[in-house]
Design a protein around this nucleic acid. Sequence first.
DNA 1: ATAGGGTTAG
Length: 606
Amino acid sequence: MVPSVTQCLPPHPLPLTNDNTASLTHHHHRLLHHLTQCTSISHLKQIHAHTLRTSPAQHNQYLTLFLHSSIPHDLDYAFRVFRQIDEPNSFAWNTFIRACARSRDRKKHAILTYYDMMSGATVRPDKHTFPFVLKACAYLFCLSEGKQTHAQALKLGFDSDVYVNNSLIHFYGSCGCLDCAREVFEKMPERSVVSWNVMIDALVQAGEFESALKLFDEMQRSSFEPDRYTLQSVVNACAGLGALALGMWVHAYVVRKCGSDVGNGVLLNSSFVEMYCKCGSLEIAEQVFERMRKRDVSSWNSMILGLAMHGQAEAALNYFARMVNEGFMPNSVTFVGVLNACNHRGMVSEGRKYFDTMIRDYKIEPVLEHYGCLVDLLARAGFIDEALDLVSNMPVKPDVVIWRSLLDACCKKNAGVELSEEVFRRIIESEGGDCSGVYVLLSRVYGSAKRWHDVGLVRKLMSDKGVTKEPGCSSIEMDGVAHEFFAGDTSHPQTKEIYAILDAIEERLESIGYVPDFSQAPLVDELDDGKKQSLRLHSERLAIAFGLLNAKPGVPIRIFKNLRVCNDCHNVTKLISSICDVEIIVRDRARFHHFKRGSCSCMDYW
DNA sequence: ATAGGGTTAG
């Protein structure tokens, strides 16, 4: 709930502000002129000293001007100047609060200064004050401070101000309080484009891509023209959803609107690159990238990360070399892309090399993501001991993702029950044990060792703790509409045809010698028949069958899956791509697979 | 004077 007026601070006297700027003298104007010409802090200090000498009486009056001018040069100096002002007017308070909110390392002081302002009896905040304070609250995730600020803004009657409301939406969005953001958005009497933008972006940031797109639709129906911020958020939503059709629509919209200027929008173009990669269209992504007239490090990063995600390690590394060649300085994110590229191709020695290069030559401190790539790379290439060693000794605290990838590797590489148990124990120690994926992995380790009793124990543990397996779900876009399938789903209108196709395919597969791979089937020692049944109902098969049924010939079938593709589905999809002569592009939880003529772009390393 | 901007490993 957003605060109401009753939650406000106690009332305090509200004298009108002492408005220094009202009595501008000739001298004042000259001083102002000098100050605006000022380009260095030493020059500014000279003028300050001169003023102190020549007109000490008006000194206090001029301090606000010095404050304003010194901020871009030296925040510490500005801070000292501000401290000297006897009774700052609201302009002076606001100026200082804004400076803190914009600073890199003084954001906290924006809030503290605002408290000072509130607790004094001389000034009250005005409509400019709140956006500055809320910006700092948003950045620092100061939820309760921001809520108090909200209450005070209400109390002082700024609840209809567009700027204040937009700042509130942004603040609540940044703190993850979507309901509060939505409430402010719904209640505000007047909206601007920014109101829609901050609300849409809040949804995108929270991963509520469908809601974001719905709001985008509503925005247009309310006759608001989208601007670059809107489009940016919408493209990000498309990337998140894999909504290629809508993404292309936005792209066309931008091209139509900007004409030959499209090539200049660095940020938006980089988002297009990312969107096309995440929607499985590497060719278009590269086209957009090559046509960009201006690029920055992030543009290169989008391309490198995108190629890495598709397992195109060589291409990704080529882009890296090109980027360096063209004088761009790779950053931390660049190396996540590079390491991930190595990871998806099992390039262990290259991965180690780039990790060292990053630290030694580029002086980039590795963060969790870098360690994540390296640990995963080592573990999946079979160097599990080394990976475990790295996790144990790295300077950042490993999270559940790293641990799970290690356990996953143990499982895939048959690292043995003892090592797997060791990793599992470490996970529970550091995570507390409510992470679902790791139980499934452990039960699989026991299953492959045929220790059915232990499988049962893990299952019991899972049900006791209430951890469940995330259900598999695949979706496919057809004529701009997403069709969603769960495992064994029979709710789709074309269910009959879909299952008929699956039967026909299975018959074909068996006739060419396909044998199901049960290694990742549910781990109960039940009859093969039951396992087979559960495998053939995996959600991606239904989606692929739907695609075969409805896609135009020659058009690739694009599938999205929330989990990773299992071995058996991977085999089957390869075979389908061959017998049906169709390209199938699958984005799973971790990466893309391009199935074509019986093989997959991941070369079976995933 | 006031609001909205990037990425990242599984």
